[in-house]
Amino acid sequence: MGKEDVEEAIVLRIERSKLPRVNVVDGLDRVQRVLSYTPTSSEIHVIEALYILYTGHGRAVDEEDKNMGFKEVMEAYSSLNPYAWVEFEVYYDLRRRGRIALPGPRQHTFLLRKSKKDPKYTKYVLVLEESRRVSLDQLNKFVEEALHNNWEPVIAIVDRYGDITYYSITLFRPRQLTR
């Protein structure tokens, strides 16, 4: 199937009051193919919608059926979430490298699925941005939450040039050494 056919197939409706949820009006089966997993309803996350728009797999309309491009949707989401752009950068980087990323369960996070066939989550990614200070205690809580769920905690730090550095975090437990 040519990409043009797919483009026509996915239609998304962006209702600003419902963001970050976005309704899939048409082409749900193709959404599954593009996102590499089956959404549980006809709603997807706006980051996923942005990915569909950016990769040319669909189009979006607003509440009044006016067309919205990648730029307009990004602007709408950025007004609600200052991390919108960097979250998309991380999502795009993960998807581009074949990872199956699902937005959530908390703000600025993604869960990575093991594979298309195996729905188990393996990694929990927290998006951080240069100059936006974070509490170390919050970082610690993120690590604890991940380990509690058997997910590998990973932070994605996006610098001012859009470069992403990933760190996997573990709890280091100093042993009692004998001398």
Binding site: L94, L136, Y167, S168, F172
Partner: peptide, 22 residues
């Protein structure tokens, strides 16, 4: 590297960071 987080009451939590490419 390790970040040693010191809490009030002197509890310490050690977070080990390893560069990765998920």
């Amino acid at each position: 590297f390790i970040l040693a987080l010191v809490y009030p009451g002197n509890k310490i939590s050690y977070l080990l960071f390893e560069w990765s490419k998920p």
